[in-house]
């Protein structure tokens, strides 16, 4: 678990930053955008493309486009080089997202770790956004892995 070019200890960074909330945002779920998203993804299930369907809802990964206002918390240590690359997204669907929902999103640092492979050591910073509807029900969790070269 080396920290590559950074002199900082990733274990210490994890202790200091994992779980820290650093951004809060609100997103409106609009019917037209939900349908366009699903159709562009090749969806033909009426639950996702027909607003008249009794179970009409957003496509499973719809919240992945809702971006936090900040990528990292203010004061987060400079680790790795460059801005980082998008390593992928993981989505958990807890409840359907309905047209007209207003989602409140909270962003935290979920993990910081490194991996060493053929191309050297890479640092992974996992940003987590949790989305809750007006009833405060957790509807979606999105983890975004940012990868930086150590």
């Amino acid at each position: 678990m080396g920290s590559g070019s950074s002199d900082l200890d990733l274990a210490t960074i994890r202790d200091d930053w994992v779980g820290v909330e650093f951004d809060w945002a609100t997103f409106e779920m609009k019917t037209e955008d939900m349908i366009e998203w699903a159709e562009a993804c090749g969806e033909d299930d009426a639950r996702f493309i027909d607003p008249a369907h009794p179970d009409f809802q957003a496509h499973p990964g719809y919240t992945t486009h809702c971006m936090s206002g900040r990528v990292l918390p203010e004061g987060f240590p400079q680790i790795g080089s460059g801005f980082g690359i998008d390593g992928g997204k993981s989505v958990e669907v807890h409840l359907p997202i309905r047209s007209g929902d207003t989602l409140n999103a909270t962003t935290t640092i979920a993990d910081v770790f490194d991996k060493t492979g053929r191309s050297g050591t890479m640092i992974f910073i996992v940003q987590r956004m949790e989305f809750r509807n007006e009833q405060d029900d957790l509807v979606s969790t999105v983890d975004w892995k940012m990868i930086k070269k150590a």
Binding site: W37, A38, A40, C41, G42, E43, D44, D45, F48, H59, P60, G61, T64, H65, D86, G88, K89, V91
Partner: peptide, 17 residues
Amino acid sequence: GIMSQGLLASMIHRWAP
């Protein structure tokens, strides 16, 4: 990238409606 994830989701729905 997020579109590629959506394309995969649609493939799953089509396979198992």
